[in-house]
């Protein structure tokens, strides 16, 4: 066999793309009476699944806690067979787990995908690059009368997630070791971020989530504040939201287009 043929065969056997078929295995691998080649290859296959399910468990601890060892293991195995790792960092393996759970929903817990979304957002926040945090005084860079033209660079760790169900409560109860409530319909929006080494998340009003996404898209302050237009007092709500963003350390920089 060439090296290419060997790697194609071995990879297929390890990942389960190929069955552990003794004749095929014995063409490429040597075994002993005590440990035949098929059993030797099976060691790698078992380790492959086990390692990736362990990585998923680390990223989605509350989903794993809710489902229990066996159900989470079966979920992980099905997921990995459909979405094998495409990144050198095994911690990225869960990137599409929420999407997978939406594709194959649990009729009793339709909020599992949203729980996975929260845990993935927290995972991303944990590994995000560090960002500075500036205070509201930086808005002065815009100059008199030009605050509406200011643009915000948000913290690299900040994630804004839209959820169909109120899985924030589900997450909180699993985190504290309590039994979960039944699924609570949403929609809700949630922000996750890191301060220092600690990851936080909180629910945010839908219009504030829109404003955050607008800021992430690089739009100017007038567009950001337009997200609050339907509130009874848009200016007060926009001001309160912006104050809390500065307070939480979500704003890394304020800039103004020099041509403005």
């Amino acid at each position: 066999m060439t090296l290419a043929e060997t790697q194609e065969l071995f990879h297929g056997l390890v990942t389960g793309e190929l069955p552990l078929d003794a004749p095929a295995i014995e063409r490429g691998f040597l075994g002993t009476d005590e440990l035949p080649a098929t059993d030797r290859v099976a060691i790698y296959r078992n380790m492959y699944i086990g390692r990736l399910v362990d990585a998923l468990r680390e990223t989605f601890p509350n989903l794993a806690r809710f489902l229990g060892e066996d159900r989470f293991g079966r979920l992980g195995e099905s997921y990995v067979s459909e979405h094998p790792s495409e990144h050198h960092d095994v911690a990225r393996i869960g990137r599409r787990l929420a999407e997978f759970l939406r594709e194959y929903p649990d009729p009793d817990r339709p909020d599992l995908a949203d729980l996975a979304d929260i845990e993935w957002a927290r995972n991303e926040a944990f590994f995000a690059p560090d960002s500075p945090a500036v205070g509201p005084d930086t808005l002065a860079v815009a100059g008199p009368g030009k605050v509406a033209l200011a643009r915000l660079r948000l913290s690299d760790s900040l994630r804004v997630v839209g959820l169909e169900w109120n899985a924030a409560s589900f997450w909180r109860r699993m985190e504290s070791g309590e039994l979960p409530d039944p699924p609570v319909p949403g929609p809700i929006a949630l922000a996750a971020w890191r301060r220092g080494f600690e990851v936080f998340h909180c629910t945010v009003p839908m219009e504030e989530a829109t404003a955050l996404r607008t800021a992430m898209d690089g739009e100017a302050m007038d567009s950001i504040c337009a997200a609050f237009a339907d509130r009874p007092d848009p200016a007060a709500d926009a001001h309160a939201a912006l104050a809390s963003w500065f307070n939480e350390g979500w704003i890394a920089a304020v800039s103004v287009d020099p041509a403005a």
Binding site: M1, T2, L3, T6, Q7, E8, F10, H11, V14, T15, Y44, M47, Y48, R51, L52, A55, P84, S85, E86, H87, H88, V90
Partner: peptide, 25 residues
Amino acid sequence: CWGSHRGQYVHDLLPLPYTEESLAH
């Protein structure tokens, strides 16, 4: 070892056949 194939990572340290072809590669 090797651990990636066709862009997929198995996150394991798979051994190589010890041949001249592998060595050159």
